[in-house]
């Protein structure tokens, strides 16, 4: 992973881009407070004040009083643009900026239950035309069955339940009746959040693990209607963080065969040594760890925790015996 690009402090480039956007933005909002403007640009009031001081000493050659940018920001915390010089309009969107927005819009428009789908399509076309961007150059398409999406969409619109056959992360197949609350996307995985009658609790289901789904003509209980569960952005954020952040979870030590070195490419894996390739892997439950090691069929070997090593060997022996006996 190449994190270096993102971690750096603000560059001249970024500051200049902000200064160029700041003047027309303030002009359209004469009298806005320093606090509100700073919050909008996600900077401190101190930084904004520095930016404004920077702007008022710049302008057209000659640099006389009539040639400099003129902004008042000393009276009761409010900002008044008196003369923006040539900065009457923001800079045209770059192809990269246009693509960033239209790729995101394309992803949103695929989510069942999303409103304003027509507006989104119009926006994508406008952005692609104005910026010369082609958002198709980045393919971010959840690999889920369109018919399943349509069913969930219809269930969300009609406020009815769905019955589904679901294959869980532990490879078990169960029948569930769910009151859908909403659908969300993380990367190219699509998830249904809903109230599961089997679990008697809210659960999150991955759409590509649904084996079959149909609407059932039974209304969603009022308490599970979407309006009561509209999560603010923080809801999804904390869910992703709890899935990504393995800070406190125990870690297993695993030795990897040279032929399976791709295992070490997963972002959550930490390489301990390269010869032989030994990695540390976070695990939430011992069941998951045993299943994961087994699914890789002997191309990796568990070193720690030691008490699970024997369990894996026994599971493998039992499966061997059963499979041989059945023929």
């Amino acid at each position: 992973m190449n994190l270096g690009v993102l971690a750096v402090a603000e560059t001249v480039n970024e500051r200049l881009a902000r200064l160029l956007a700041l003047v027309p933005w303030l002009s359209a909002r004469q009298g806005i407070t320093l606090t509100a403007a700073a919050r909008h640009f996600d900077i401190s009031v101190e930084q904004l004040t520095k930016d404004l001081w920077q702007l008022v000493v710049c302008g057209l050659p000659g640099y006389g009083p009539d040639q400099l940018v003129d902004i008042d920001f000393w009276d009761d915390d409010r900002i008044w643009v008196q003369d923006p010089q040539t900065l009457t309009t923001p800079l045209r969107l770059t192809a990269e900026e246009g693509a960033a927005l239209s790729i995101a819009l394309r992803l949103i428009s695929q989510i069942p239950g999303v409103e304003y789908r027509e507006d989104i399509d119009v926006l994508i076309a406008k952005l692609d035309e104005a910026c010369g961007a082609t958002s198709e150059l980045v393919q971010l398409t959840p690999q889920t069955n369109q018919a399943f999406r349509d069913t969930i969409n219809a269930a969300l619109e009609g406020n009815v339940q769905v019955a589904m056959t679901y294959s869980s992360g532990s490879d078990e197949v169960t029948e569930r009746r769910v009151s859908p609350i909403r659908v969300f996307v993380v990367d190219d995985y699509m998830y249904l959040e809903g109230y599961c009658e089997r679990a008697e609790a809210r659960r999150i289901f991955r759409l590509d693990r649904i084996l079959s789904i149909e609407m059932v003509p039974r209304s969603v209980a009022v308490s599970h209607q979407k309006h009561d569960h509209l999560l603010h952005a923080g809801g999804l954020e904390s869910w992703i963080v709890s899935n990504d952040n393995f800070g406190d979870t125990p870690r297993a030590l695993v030795q990897v065969d040279p032929g399976s070195s791709w295992v070490a490419e997963e972002p959550y894996v930490e390489v301990i040594s390269t010869k032989p390739l030994t990695i540390s892997v976070p695990y939430l439950t011992e069941d998951w760890l045993v299943r994961w090691v087994m699914s890789l069929g002997g191309s990796i070997q568990l070193l720690e925790p030691r008490h699970l090593i024997k369990e894996i060997a026994q599971n493998a022996r039992a499966s061997l015996a059963a499979l041989s006996a059945r023929d």
Binding site: M1, N2, L3, V5, I111, G113, R182, V185, E237, I240
Partner: peptide, 14 residues
Amino acid sequence: PLIQGVARVRAQDG
């Protein structure tokens, strides 16, 4: 929150 579904992309690769 007029749009009830949300989406997040985590790609960090420069």
